[in-house]
Design a protein around this nucleic acid. Structure first.
Length: 374
DNA sequence: AGATAAGGTAAGGGTAATCCAAAAGT
DNA sequence: TACTTTTGGATTACCCTTACCTTATC
């Protein structure tokens, strides 16, 4: 009998799996269940980009290959000189990433056609013609339109489809109701999760094609879903929210804010804010720090920690004429926290990995209690 | 020769930078 | 009230994952 696998040996084994097996989502999910495999999803952080770049340069140097040969290696299929270990080596440079993710990421970022920005009317014409001629064969279309296959596809589904009936601008009450109806029919009325099981292409169709999939999704996740959850009231961002956000980000102890998984930041008791909204709020917060462009994440954090050292008092009641204060989500959280710290039930909090936050807030709150409105 | 793994392409799901209007602050 | 600053709504180029194949490898 050997020793039970230590964390290290487990990780080494997992790292090897991730770097050498082209695991499809089912197999990945199974390994997560059976072996406690941990892997990373979502946007590649700046740090990971660096690590990949380093690995690619190292490979290029060791094998003494030119940049052209490198591009061949990444894009040309069935090249006899192909090195089967190439993708595995790159993957080892970014721990926790499956080889398929690295493969796709590198092929995107080293693509010879770089993104070109806004589409010109002539390009749209070319695209429409190409689709008419070829069908949805994006790689072939790409050659004719001189845009990446993925960009052609995106242009098509987001802007060309239904472009004559598509409308933009502020949503009417009727549209909002219709969207809410469609989303709830599709999810809760089918026993599905209203936050995760929505097919936005389908939703757009059901909206009669008047609104695109992006319009529908953003409208729902950033606006409608939270007013639905908040009994029709629209929350407004407050200084308390800013305080909470700074402390949550701080508690993650990331090296860089590109490492943050914003979905983990939203809290069951603070979840009126979508991940997207929180990310946006973080950016404005960060930009409020003078000279942030040249600072490390740690420097920025330090300043923000100082700036937001104290929990701001609730809603400055300077005047009472304010038509019944909108309930802010921050208020909801602080209320919850005071219950939480009294009860001290471990399961009460969220298990999102930002647990230290609640303690911080409770302490701050205790110290600040007198300043709080009653 | 047939099974399985690697790899290519398309479909599906999402993020983040930006513009501008509305609300809050002064 | 008029003006300035902050926040929120909408838009859209761009990014990541999954599904479904074809091709390579054993």
């Amino acid at each position: 009998m050997s020793l039970p696998p230590t964390e290290q040996s487990g990780n080494a084994k997992h790292a090897h799996l991730l770097a050498h097996k082209w695991l499809n989502p089912n197999k990945l999910a199974e390994l997560v269940r059976t072996e406690g495999l941990v892997y990373k999803k979502g946007k590649f952080s700046a740090i990971e980009e660096q690590q990949l770049k380093g690995a690619i340069e190292k490979y290029q140097h060791e094998k003494q290959i030119s940049s052209e040969q490198l591009i061949d290696l990444i894009f040309t299929k069935s090249d006899k000189t192909k090195d089967a270990t190439f993708w595995s080596e790159l993957t080892l440079a970014v721990p926790l990433r499956p080889i398929i993710a690295v493969y796709h990421h590198v092929r995107r970022s080293y693509h010879p056609m770089q993104p070109l920005g806004e589409w010109q009317p002539e390009e749209d014409k070319k695209l429409i013609q190409a689709i008419a001629d070829l069908g949805q064969q994006w790689e072939k279309i790409s050659v004719r339109v001189s845009r990446r296959a993925a960009d052609c596809r995106d242009r098509y589904r987001n802007h060309i489809v239904n472009k004559d009936i598509r409308i933009t601008g502020v949503w009417s009450k009727e549209e909002e109701q219709q969207l809410t109806q469609i989303v709830t029919d599709m999810t809760v009325n089918q026993g599905k999760d209203i936050d995760n099981d929505v097919f936005w292409g389908k939703v757009s169709e059901l909206m009669g094609g008047k609104r695109g999939r992006q319009q529908c999704r953003i409208k729902w996740t950033d606006a409608l879903s939270k007013t639905v959850k908040n009994e029709g009231q629209k929350p407004r961002w407050s200084q308390q929210d800013a305080y909470i956000l700074v402390h949550k980000v701080d508690s993650l102890n990331v090296r860089d804010d590109t490492e943050i998984d914003w979905k983990l930041i939203s809290d069951p008791d603070w979840n009126l804010w979508s991940a997207h909204t929180l990310q946006r709020r973080w950016l404005t917060l960060k930009k409020s720090v003078k000279g942030y462009e040249d600072m490390t994440h740690q420097d920025i954090m330090e300043i923000l920690r100082l700036k937001k050292a104290h929990l701001p008092t609730v809603a400055p009641p300077a005047t009472k004429k304010r038509k019944e204060r909108k309930v802010t989500s921050a208020a909801a959280v602080t209320e919850f926290d005071s219950r939480d710290s009294n009860a001290a039930t471990p399961e009460a909090g969220s298990s999102t990995g930002v647990g230290t936050f609640n303690e911080t807030l409770s302490q701050e709150k205790a110290a600040d209690e007198d300043g709080l409105d009653t």
